[in-house]
Write a protein that binds this DNA or RNA. Structure first.
Length: 110
DNA sequence: AACGTGACAAGGC
DNA sequence: AGCCTTGCCACGT
């Protein structure tokens, strides 16, 4: 029998749909996955992404338009390189979400 | 089975 | 702009 998809699998599936040349935030992925306000879970899921899984993990950035990876170990540079290759422009260390954001950021607070 | 942790986000200063 | 606090919840110990 088919087991229900785990929370991680739902998140990975959402990320798989982000088009090339666009970026989105952790919070938005959470929302699109039906897990509102659980951005941290998205980060956790990404951190645990299996190697074989082919998803555009680099298109996920934080709500400030910045890369959320440490600059020390090179993973920051790796993500930036992948984004630059897709034509995304950095202003300093930030990306303009209004310009490159996948979907509009909806604030469904309240 | 409780507890600390985390590739986050929003609000208050 | 930057720092601090709080809300969030699946996971590994």
């Amino acid at each position: 029998m088919k087991r229900a998809p785990s929370t991680y699998e739902i998140i990975w599936e959402t990320i798989r749909h982000i088009p090339k040349g666009k970026v989105t935030t952790y919070g938005e992925v959470a929302e699109q996955s039906g897990l509102p306000r659980q951005a941290r879970l998205v980060g956790y899921a990404l951190h645990n992404t299996p190697h074989g899984l082919d998803i555009p993990w680099h298109r996920v950035i934080n709500s400030q338009g910045k890369i959320s990876l440490p600059k020390q170990n090179g993973s920051y540079a790796k993500q930036k390189k992948l984004l630059l290759k897709e034509g995304i422009v950095f202003t300093g260390d930030k990306i303009d979400l209004k310009k490159y954001g996948w979907l509009r950021r909806l604030k469904n607070r309240k």
